[in-house]
Write a protein that binds this DNA or RNA. Structure first.
Lengths: 191, 191, 191, 191
DNA sequence: CATGAATGAGAGTTCATTCAT
DNA sequence: GATGAATGAACTCTCATTCAT
């Protein structure tokens, strides 16, 4: 695949993302993508052979970006509490934007493809990261001496709860703040 | 609609539920329901005019049952902690069964119909109930003196997180127990 | 068929007429008639086995009425010109009401059933009547000495033209008056 | 839409015309047209999205042709009487062919779409043309000094009457001749 | 006689997918 | 590579007609 082809593929992925954001996963047809990209029906098939294929590549492109963003924001000399706060702040942003992201489409995809492990991988990766972070915090005596893995999972379940609630019924920034505050309070030792 | 018709409607709702459990909401066509019920193409339209209509009645029938089950289990002289434990135990069962319930279909329906408030209503009702329960527990000095509404919401978000996780990636009974233990621990005063 | 059955049949014909007036011939289904009559689906079939059958009986009932009305209005000592004027006046009324009559439905029926001779019979009957009337007028020296049959036909074609125009594009009372005036002027000798 | 597509569209319009001629307007389904054109079910929808759309384009194509035919036949130095005679001769031809034309379908379309003004426009255009022609004839002292507009309308109503009669009950060439003769006689001054 | 649930044929419509150009 | 016309399968929905009660 040449240079030009790669550009075209990028274009398709960008436009397709908008379509998935708007219509979810199951609601999207190849025709929808063709229309959004203003390419030919046959043209799309040169790059992707199903909406699933498009969706998975859209997701892959997304997660690359996401990692970058977080990595950039973590300073060199940040404490565990700092990093946790930063992580939660990012999550809050994400949750509030959920109607403009692939959240719903991704859940829908997961429903339709129970074998697929995308969400599980993301979840596990986040848990592992938080686990390490919490251990670090405990070691540094920033955090209470809790079971790190369980605490990490709890954080993630609360976040998942907020995410799905945000998509299906809406949540306010304040509501999120309350939850995040409970999380921090349960971990960070007040001086 | 006569006696016989009502029975038929019940039959359709039962069979349709199985279909929704298996295929979610968007994946279900009128034809799927027709096939599952072994009735004629036109026959289904005598009772329902869209998959949405069928689904909403399936849900309505479900929620009636659910209420009954919980009401029956609460004893007369139960303490707040007892009731909370019972509630959480029910939730655990529900979560573990989630691949055999309408959970995914309901989320999918909510994605496709953002205006619909079914999930919100259920959530709010549960929060209100927990709020009352927690206030009662605090008054009886069973529970710590927390902000009842925030604690109630926290419980619900954790449960939502477990529910969606259960559907999309699976959760073990142990994982659920850990979460529920954290909830109880955050509320119930140990003697 | 007993007394009660006859009443029921009448009821069906009345309601069905309204349906045909509103929806034409081809636009009417057995279901439409059933709904309008508030009888059972099967019930209708006890009396009629197709929309065509209903329509033909509606038409038959209509033409009986029509004859009655005209006969009643003709006085004993009316001149040919009087009778012609009366006939044209009736026709004018009919044409102006055409959107509330079976005109369109009847044409539509005729299109769909070229073999059917209803319209031809009505037309021929009217021509015959006018032919006699004009001959009488000529004999009485009320009318010019025209070819009675041709004049009769001309009147009918103008009326047909007004009728179809009324249904398809609307005509004003004045327009009709102009046409009727031309007819009278071509026949009646001014004193 | 490319060259090839235009040809295909033409083909569809031609075949569809035959279908409308045979079955009228309401009697035609998309399937009928598909079958007549020997294209695929979906194929027709690439060009037209309803029988109404097809029909209106068939009509549009027709009226273009019709205009051409008449324009070609009018000589440079024709008198008003010549032109009128030519017009009526064309109309006679049209009326005699009416079972092989769109006449019935067009009326049927008008019944089903009272808002549509196709017939009214055609009628008005013809009246306007005849009005001018008659004024010219009067000015040239070829025609009697009648009210041109009323005379023009009378011609058109007679023609409409003949047309609908032709479709619904049939008319002979002689009958038409009689009517056209009356029209000419009422206008043209005999020398 | 009368009912209305039930059936199944058939019309409308949309799409994934192919393929000649 | 790229196009977009074409196909045919699948789905939605409506009705005429039947038949057990």
């Amino acid at each position: 695949m040449g240079e030009r082809s790669l550009q075209k593929k990028q274009l398709i992925l960008e436009k397709a993302k908008e379509v998935f954001v708007e219509k979810g996963f199951r609601g999207v047809t190849m025709k929808d993508i063709v229309d959004a990209c203003e390419i030919s029906r046959g043209g799309l098939y040169l790059y992707f052979s199903s909406t699933e294929e498009v969706f998975l590549e859209v997701l892959a492109a997304e997660s690359e970006e996401a990692d970058d963003v977080f990595a950039e924001s973590v300073g060199e000399d940040a404490t565990a509490a700092d990093i946790l706060a930063l992580f939660l702040k990012e999550q809050k942003k994400e949750i509030l934007r959920s109607k403009k992201t692939l959240t719903a489409a991704t859940y829908e995809y997961a429903f339709a493809n129970p074998k697929n492990t995308i969400l599980k991988k993301q979840f596990t990766a986040a848990v592992t990261m938080l686990d390490k972070l919490i251990r670090m915090g405990i070691k540094n005596e920033e955090f209470y001496d809790v079971d790190a893995r369980i605490a990490a999972k709890n954080i993630m379940y609360v976040l998942e709860g907020l995410k799905i609630a945000s998509v299906t019924m809406g949540v306010s920034g304040e509501t999120i703040d309350n939850e995040l505050y409970m999380i921090m309070q349960g971990l960070v030792i007040e001086e």
